[in-house]
């Protein structure tokens, strides 16, 4: 039976991919910069943390406190790590998206829309 939690929203998908790509250096600033550089998307920090909390609740990522630096006003970073479930969920989402794209015959057909 379809489980609602197994589906990733578009922004969840992007955040999860960023966490996976950035590896051990995935935290608020680096994820925001990554999304801006790669897909030119300005993401509000509030939206990012709300999504990260949701992903953590789903068990797709974990978070841990990092070091505090002077340029952060002495506040510690919060690093995110992807879990095995998170990787599985990304693979599943990719497979589903590819299945959907396979049903679009050619780019020429797409242009007609």
């Amino acid at each position: 039976m379809a489980n609602k939690q197994s589906y990733l929203g578009e922004f969840e998908h992007l955040v999860l991919l960023s966490v996976m790509v950035l590896g051990a250096d995935a935290y608020g600033v680096s994820i925001r910069r990554h999304l801006k550089t790669v897909i030119d998307r300005d993401v509000s920090i509030g939206a990012l943390y709300a999504t990260a909390q949701r992903l953590e609740k789903k068990g797709l990522i974990t978070s841990r406190k990092g070091e505090a630096t002077p340029e952060r006003g002495g506040k510690a970073k919060r690093y995110f790590d992807i879990t095995a479930d998170g990787v599985g969920c990304l693979k599943q989402t990719r497979a589903r998206l590819e299945q959907m794209w396979e049903r679009v015959p050619t780019l020429f057909t797409l242009r007609e829309y």
Partner: peptide
């Protein structure tokens, strides 16, 4: 987390 990220 948010205050630190914005300051950084």
């Amino acid at each position: 987390d948010i205050c630190g990220d914005l300051e950084e």
